[in-house]
Amino acid sequence: MTPVIECQQLNVRFRTDGGAVTAVSDLDFNLNAGECLGVVGESGSGKSQTFLAMFGLLAHNGTATGSIRYRGTELLNAPRSTLDGLRGNRLAMIFQDALSGLTPTMRIGDQMSEVLMRHQGLSRRNARARVIEALEVVRIADPEQRFSAYPFEMSGGMRQRVMIAMATLCRPEVLIADEPTTALDVTVQAQVLRLLNGLKNHTGTSLVLITHDLGVVAGLCDRVLIMYAGRAVELGPVRDIFRRPAHPYTQALLRSMPSLIIDPGKDLPVIPGQPPDLENLPAGCPFASRCLHTQDDCTTERPRLRAVGPDHSRACHLPA
Protein backbone atom coordinates (compact mmCIF):
# COMPACT_ATOMS: atom_id res chain seq x y z
CA MET A 1 0.00 0.00 0.00
CA THR A 2 1.45 3.36 -0.97
CA PRO A 3 1.12 6.03 1.64
CA VAL A 4 -0.55 9.32 0.69
CA ILE A 5 1.45 11.30 3.19
CA GLU A 6 4.97 10.39 4.26
CA CYS A 7 6.48 12.31 7.12
CA GLN A 8 10.16 11.75 7.86
CA GLN A 9 12.38 13.21 10.56
CA LEU A 10 10.11 16.19 11.07
CA ASN A 11 11.39 18.80 13.50
CA VAL A 12 9.50 21.96 14.36
CA ARG A 13 11.13 24.68 16.45
CA PHE A 14 10.04 28.09 17.63
CA ARG A 15 12.21 31.01 18.63
CA THR A 16 10.81 32.71 21.71
CA ASP A 17 11.85 35.19 24.38
CA GLY A 18 13.05 32.37 26.58
CA GLY A 19 15.03 30.56 23.88
CA ALA A 20 14.24 27.80 21.40
CA VAL A 21 11.16 25.67 21.95
CA THR A 22 11.11 22.27 20.30
CA ALA A 23 7.50 21.52 19.38
CA VAL A 24 8.11 18.39 17.30
CA SER A 25 11.24 16.25 17.22
CA ASP A 26 12.23 13.50 14.81
CA LEU A 27 8.70 12.51 13.88
CA ASP A 28 8.14 9.71 11.33
CA PHE A 29 4.75 8.46 10.21
CA ASN A 30 2.74 7.56 7.11
CA LEU A 31 -0.87 8.14 6.23
CA ASN A 32 -2.26 5.37 4.04
CA ALA A 33 -4.92 5.82 1.39
CA GLY A 34 -8.44 5.63 2.77
CA GLU A 35 -7.49 5.21 6.41
CA CYS A 36 -8.29 7.33 9.42
CA LEU A 37 -5.27 8.09 11.58
CA GLY A 38 -5.91 9.39 15.07
CA VAL A 39 -3.23 11.69 16.46
CA VAL A 40 -3.58 11.86 20.23
CA GLY A 41 -1.73 14.05 22.68
CA GLU A 42 -2.11 16.72 25.31
CA SER A 43 -1.50 20.41 24.79
CA GLY A 44 2.14 20.94 23.88
CA SER A 45 2.52 17.45 22.45
CA GLY A 46 3.12 18.87 18.97
CA LYS A 47 0.12 17.19 17.40
CA SER A 48 -1.27 20.36 15.82
CA GLN A 49 2.10 21.89 14.91
CA THR A 50 2.96 18.81 12.83
CA PHE A 51 0.06 19.45 10.49
CA LEU A 52 0.33 23.22 10.53
CA ALA A 53 3.90 22.69 9.30
CA MET A 54 2.58 20.43 6.56
CA PHE A 55 0.18 23.17 5.43
CA GLY A 56 2.83 25.90 5.64
CA LEU A 57 0.84 27.56 8.42
CA LEU A 58 3.42 27.72 11.21
CA ALA A 59 3.59 30.95 13.20
CA HIS A 60 6.22 33.35 11.87
CA ASN A 61 8.79 32.42 14.55
CA GLY A 62 8.58 28.73 13.71
CA THR A 63 10.79 26.65 11.42
CA ALA A 64 10.33 23.10 10.21
CA THR A 65 13.00 20.71 8.98
CA GLY A 66 12.79 17.18 7.64
CA SER A 67 10.30 16.06 5.04
CA ILE A 68 6.55 15.72 4.57
CA ARG A 69 5.61 14.41 1.14
CA TYR A 70 2.19 14.17 -0.47
CA ARG A 71 2.38 11.51 -3.20
CA GLY A 72 6.03 12.34 -3.71
CA THR A 73 5.62 16.13 -3.67
CA GLU A 74 7.59 17.77 -0.88
CA LEU A 75 5.31 20.06 1.14
CA LEU A 76 7.73 21.30 3.76
CA ASN A 77 9.02 24.76 2.89
CA ALA A 78 7.54 24.29 -0.58
CA PRO A 79 6.99 27.34 -2.79
CA ARG A 80 3.68 29.07 -2.34
CA SER A 81 2.45 28.10 -5.77
CA THR A 82 2.80 24.39 -4.96
CA LEU A 83 0.97 24.76 -1.68
CA ASP A 84 -1.79 26.93 -3.15
CA GLY A 85 -2.53 24.30 -5.77
CA LEU A 86 -2.88 21.59 -3.14
CA ARG A 87 -4.34 23.31 -0.10
CA GLY A 88 -8.14 23.43 -0.14
CA ASN A 89 -8.06 21.18 -3.18
CA ARG A 90 -6.20 17.89 -2.63
CA LEU A 91 -5.41 18.57 1.04
CA ALA A 92 -7.92 20.17 3.36
CA MET A 93 -7.89 21.10 7.01
CA ILE A 94 -10.60 21.94 9.52
CA PHE A 95 -9.94 23.59 12.84
CA GLN A 96 -11.31 23.49 16.34
CA ASP A 97 -12.64 27.01 16.07
CA ALA A 98 -14.86 26.95 13.01
CA LEU A 99 -15.37 30.69 13.16
CA SER A 100 -11.71 31.38 12.47
CA GLY A 101 -11.92 29.47 9.20
CA LEU A 102 -14.83 31.50 7.84
CA THR A 103 -14.70 35.11 6.70
CA PRO A 104 -17.21 36.97 8.85
CA THR A 105 -18.21 39.48 6.18
CA MET A 106 -18.95 37.01 3.36
CA ARG A 107 -22.03 34.88 2.89
CA ILE A 108 -21.11 31.25 3.45
CA GLY A 109 -22.37 30.23 0.01
CA ASP A 110 -20.11 32.76 -1.67
CA GLN A 111 -17.10 31.64 0.37
CA MET A 112 -17.73 28.05 -0.59
CA SER A 113 -18.39 28.78 -4.27
CA GLU A 114 -15.14 30.69 -4.47
CA VAL A 115 -13.19 27.57 -3.53
CA LEU A 116 -14.76 25.65 -6.40
CA MET A 117 -14.39 28.48 -8.87
CA ARG A 118 -10.72 28.85 -8.04
CA HIS A 119 -9.61 25.23 -7.84
CA GLN A 120 -11.91 23.61 -10.36
CA GLY A 121 -12.73 26.51 -12.65
CA LEU A 122 -16.47 26.03 -12.20
CA SER A 123 -18.93 28.73 -13.25
CA ARG A 124 -20.75 30.57 -10.49
CA ARG A 125 -23.94 28.71 -11.33
CA ASN A 126 -22.44 25.22 -11.26
CA ALA A 127 -20.52 26.07 -8.12
CA ARG A 128 -23.75 27.10 -6.41
CA ALA A 129 -25.36 23.77 -7.24
CA ARG A 130 -22.35 21.87 -5.87
CA VAL A 131 -22.32 23.98 -2.69
CA ILE A 132 -25.99 23.36 -2.01
CA GLU A 133 -25.41 19.66 -2.55
CA ALA A 134 -22.50 19.75 -0.10
CA LEU A 135 -24.59 21.57 2.50
CA GLU A 136 -27.24 18.89 2.13
CA VAL A 137 -24.66 16.21 2.75
CA VAL A 138 -23.69 17.77 6.07
CA ARG A 139 -27.39 17.92 6.96
CA ILE A 140 -27.81 21.66 7.02
CA ALA A 141 -31.56 22.21 6.94
CA ASP A 142 -32.73 24.56 4.17
CA PRO A 143 -29.45 24.71 2.21
CA GLU A 144 -30.92 27.13 -0.35
CA GLN A 145 -31.66 29.61 2.41
CA ARG A 146 -28.44 28.98 4.31
CA PHE A 147 -26.45 29.62 1.16
CA SER A 148 -26.86 33.34 1.74
CA ALA A 149 -26.41 33.30 5.52
CA TYR A 150 -23.46 34.91 7.28
CA PRO A 151 -21.31 32.84 9.67
CA PHE A 152 -22.50 34.76 12.74
CA GLU A 153 -26.06 33.71 11.99
CA MET A 154 -25.20 30.06 12.63
CA SER A 155 -24.61 28.02 15.76
CA GLY A 156 -21.22 26.50 16.55
CA GLY A 157 -22.26 23.04 15.40
CA MET A 158 -23.68 24.37 12.16
CA ARG A 159 -20.49 26.34 11.45
CA GLN A 160 -18.38 23.25 12.05
CA ARG A 161 -20.54 21.32 9.59
CA VAL A 162 -20.22 24.15 7.07
CA MET A 163 -16.43 23.97 7.52
CA ILE A 164 -16.54 20.25 6.82
CA ALA A 165 -18.69 20.84 3.74
CA MET A 166 -16.25 23.50 2.57
CA ALA A 167 -13.19 21.33 3.24
CA THR A 168 -14.68 18.47 1.28
CA LEU A 169 -16.03 20.46 -1.69
CA CYS A 170 -13.14 19.57 -3.95
CA ARG A 171 -13.21 15.94 -2.74
CA PRO A 172 -9.77 16.17 -1.14
CA GLU A 173 -7.62 13.10 -0.85
CA VAL A 174 -6.53 14.06 2.65
CA LEU A 175 -8.58 15.78 5.31
CA ILE A 176 -6.90 16.95 8.50
CA ALA A 177 -9.38 17.59 11.32
CA ASP A 178 -7.75 19.42 14.22
CA GLU A 179 -9.89 18.92 17.32
CA PRO A 180 -13.04 19.29 15.22
CA THR A 181 -15.42 18.58 18.09
CA THR A 182 -13.63 19.97 21.13
CA ALA A 183 -15.60 23.22 21.14
CA LEU A 184 -18.91 21.45 20.58
CA ASP A 185 -21.50 19.95 22.90
CA VAL A 186 -21.74 16.16 23.12
CA THR A 187 -24.91 15.84 21.10
CA VAL A 188 -23.50 18.08 18.38
CA GLN A 189 -20.18 16.26 18.59
CA ALA A 190 -22.06 13.06 17.82
CA GLN A 191 -23.54 14.69 14.69
CA VAL A 192 -20.12 15.83 13.48
CA LEU A 193 -18.45 12.48 14.19
CA ARG A 194 -21.19 10.65 12.31
CA LEU A 195 -20.55 12.97 9.40
CA LEU A 196 -16.79 12.33 9.41
CA ASN A 197 -17.41 8.62 9.63
CA GLY A 198 -19.69 8.74 6.59
CA LEU A 199 -17.11 10.76 4.72
CA LYS A 200 -14.41 8.21 5.39
CA ASN A 201 -16.58 5.26 4.41
CA HIS A 202 -18.15 6.72 1.29
CA THR A 203 -15.53 8.90 -0.37
CA GLY A 204 -12.28 7.12 0.45
CA THR A 205 -10.78 10.31 1.83
CA SER A 206 -7.80 9.73 4.13
CA LEU A 207 -8.58 11.33 7.43
CA VAL A 208 -6.28 12.59 10.17
CA LEU A 209 -8.13 13.21 13.41
CA ILE A 210 -6.15 15.29 15.87
CA THR A 211 -7.65 15.03 19.33
CA HIS A 212 -7.05 14.64 23.03
CA ASP A 213 -10.16 12.50 23.44
CA LEU A 214 -9.50 8.78 23.27
CA GLY A 215 -13.23 8.12 23.14
CA VAL A 216 -13.50 9.90 19.81
CA VAL A 217 -10.50 7.99 18.49
CA ALA A 218 -11.95 4.63 19.45
CA GLY A 219 -15.09 5.25 17.46
CA LEU A 220 -13.55 6.52 14.26
CA CYS A 221 -9.90 5.70 13.68
CA ASP A 222 -8.09 2.75 12.13
CA ARG A 223 -4.64 3.57 13.44
CA VAL A 224 -3.50 5.79 16.29
CA LEU A 225 -0.36 7.86 16.81
CA ILE A 226 0.24 8.86 20.42
CA MET A 227 2.43 11.93 20.87
CA TYR A 228 4.10 13.27 23.99
CA ALA A 229 6.30 16.37 24.26
CA GLY A 230 6.80 16.55 20.49
CA ARG A 231 7.64 12.87 19.93
CA ALA A 232 5.81 9.84 18.73
CA VAL A 233 5.62 7.46 21.69
CA GLU A 234 3.36 4.82 20.21
CA LEU A 235 1.87 4.01 16.82
CA GLY A 236 -0.42 1.13 16.06
CA PRO A 237 -3.83 -0.20 15.02
CA VAL A 238 -6.65 1.20 17.13
CA ARG A 239 -7.54 -2.16 18.66
CA ASP A 240 -3.96 -2.79 19.79
CA ILE A 241 -3.69 0.68 21.27
CA PHE A 242 -6.79 0.12 23.40
CA ARG A 243 -6.38 -3.58 24.13
CA ARG A 244 -2.59 -3.90 24.37
CA PRO A 245 -1.14 -0.45 24.88
CA ALA A 246 2.64 -0.87 24.81
CA HIS A 247 3.95 2.50 26.03
CA PRO A 248 3.62 3.40 29.72
CA TYR A 249 2.21 6.80 28.73
CA THR A 250 -0.56 5.27 26.64
CA GLN A 251 -1.30 2.80 29.42
CA ALA A 252 -1.47 5.57 32.02
CA LEU A 253 -3.57 7.80 29.75
CA LEU A 254 -6.13 5.06 29.20
CA ARG A 255 -6.28 4.29 32.91
CA SER A 256 -6.58 7.91 34.03
CA MET A 257 -9.37 8.86 31.68
CA PRO A 258 -12.77 9.28 33.30
CA SER A 259 -15.29 7.57 31.05
CA LEU A 260 -18.75 6.09 31.36
CA ILE A 261 -17.31 2.62 31.82
CA ILE A 262 -15.09 3.15 34.88
CA ASP A 263 -16.11 2.42 38.46
CA PRO A 264 -16.72 5.82 40.07
CA GLY A 265 -16.36 4.30 43.52
CA LYS A 266 -12.62 3.84 43.02
CA ASP A 267 -10.14 6.66 42.64
CA LEU A 268 -8.78 7.11 39.13
CA PRO A 269 -5.09 6.31 38.89
CA VAL A 270 -3.47 9.56 37.81
CA ILE A 271 -0.30 10.41 35.92
CA PRO A 272 1.66 12.38 38.49
CA GLY A 273 3.52 15.58 37.64
CA GLN A 274 3.50 17.77 34.56
CA PRO A 275 4.65 17.39 30.96
CA PRO A 276 8.28 18.56 30.54
CA ASP A 277 9.24 22.11 29.69
CA LEU A 278 9.68 22.24 25.91
CA GLU A 279 12.49 24.78 26.30
CA ASN A 280 14.54 22.31 28.35
CA LEU A 281 13.68 18.85 27.16
CA PRO A 282 15.36 16.09 29.16
CA ALA A 283 18.09 14.10 27.46
CA GLY A 284 16.36 10.75 27.69
CA CYS A 285 12.71 9.78 27.39
CA PRO A 286 10.49 12.85 27.87
CA PHE A 287 8.03 10.79 29.91
CA ALA A 288 10.67 9.36 32.27
CA SER A 289 9.96 11.79 35.12
CA ARG A 290 6.29 10.72 35.24
CA CYS A 291 6.75 7.08 34.36
CA LEU A 292 5.99 4.35 36.88
CA HIS A 293 8.64 1.92 35.65
CA THR A 294 11.88 3.59 34.72
CA GLN A 295 15.29 2.02 34.30
CA ASP A 296 18.76 3.55 34.01
CA ASP A 297 18.88 4.34 30.31
CA CYS A 298 15.45 6.09 30.41
CA THR A 299 17.02 9.31 31.65
CA THR A 300 20.12 9.17 29.47
CA GLU A 301 19.14 7.83 26.08
CA ARG A 302 16.23 8.85 23.92
CA PRO A 303 14.15 5.81 22.94
CA ARG A 304 13.30 5.37 19.26
CA LEU A 305 10.14 3.87 17.77
CA ARG A 306 10.62 0.09 17.55
CA ALA A 307 8.18 -2.59 16.46
CA VAL A 308 6.42 -4.55 19.21
CA GLY A 309 3.95 -6.30 16.93
CA PRO A 310 2.65 -6.20 13.39
CA ASP A 311 2.29 -2.55 12.40
CA HIS A 312 2.57 -1.64 16.09
CA SER A 313 5.57 0.23 17.51
CA ARG A 314 6.52 2.17 20.61
CA ALA A 315 9.37 4.34 21.82
CA CYS A 316 10.36 2.79 25.12
CA HIS A 317 13.46 1.11 26.57
CA LEU A 318 11.56 -1.25 28.86
CA PRO A 319 11.46 -4.92 27.93
CA ALA A 320 8.23 -5.61 26.08
Binding site: S155, Q189, A218
Partner: peptide, 27 residues
Protein backbone atom coordinates in the same frame (compact mmCIF):
# COMPACT_ATOMS: atom_id res chain seq x y z
CA UNK B 1 -30.78 9.25 27.05
CA UNK B 2 -29.51 11.11 24.00
CA UNK B 3 -26.88 12.89 26.08
CA UNK B 4 -25.53 9.68 27.58
CA UNK B 5 -25.53 7.78 24.32
CA UNK B 6 -23.65 10.59 22.58
CA UNK B 7 -20.63 10.30 24.88
CA UNK B 8 -17.83 8.55 22.97
CA UNK B 9 -16.75 5.40 24.75
CA UNK B 10 -13.07 4.53 24.60
CA UNK B 11 -13.71 1.09 23.17
CA UNK B 12 -12.92 0.43 19.50
CA UNK B 13 -15.32 -2.50 19.38
CA UNK B 14 -18.31 -0.30 19.98
CA UNK B 15 -18.56 1.97 16.92
CA UNK B 16 -20.46 5.14 17.74
CA UNK B 17 -22.69 5.16 14.70
CA UNK B 18 -24.52 2.10 15.92
CA UNK B 19 -25.05 2.89 19.54
CA UNK B 20 -25.61 6.61 19.67
CA UNK B 21 -29.03 8.10 19.51
CA UNK B 22 -28.07 11.20 17.62
CA UNK B 23 -30.25 14.24 18.22
CA UNK B 24 -31.07 16.14 15.09
CA UNK B 25 -31.75 19.80 14.77
CA UNK B 26 -30.33 22.78 16.54
CA UNK B 27 -30.63 24.10 20.03
Amino acid sequence: QALISAVPVPDPDRPPAERSLVLDGEL
